[in-house]
Amino acid sequence: MRHLFLIDEAEHEAGLAPAGDGLYHLLVGGETLAVALDGPRLVTGGRRDAVHVAVEGNVAHIHLDGRAFRVEFREAMARFAKGGAEGGADTLTAPMPGSVVAVNVEAGTSVTAGQIMMVIESMKLETAIKAPRDGVVATAHVAAGKTFNKGAALITLAPLEEA
């Protein structure tokens, strides 16, 4: 499959394959373009441009034609998951039996991926239940102080709209 890039929120697909001697083929739409990046020099087809690129994780900040752009690569696994990158279901279940130490959210709370929604304790070990994706809490199934069994539903996120 081709890679997905976001330029200013807009989606663009492209593939990259080696073409030897430091050259690559960029596949965009039905076309193949010979490309290379040699330090501050971007080669695309017969064209050469001065370019500055700074990469931060999966984001390339690119200075080209006197303008700066932000191009983000979306990892395929995250791109196609309905939930977060883990491909998790909407309901987070208890990984082991235990009790609830704290509940930080309630139905209707908006959460961002990675946000701690609940802290549970099992086997004298505290575990944070984090939001697997951005979303809205549909239900917090257990209250602070309550105990639960392995596999019990802890928090359910409202399902995402089908794209």
């Binding site: 196609f80 998951a81 309905k82």
Partner: peptide
């Protein structure tokens, strides 16, 4: 996996 494309990814 959530979808076929997800599974393939």
């Amino acid at each position: 996996a959530d979808t076929e494309m997800h599974a393939i990814a």
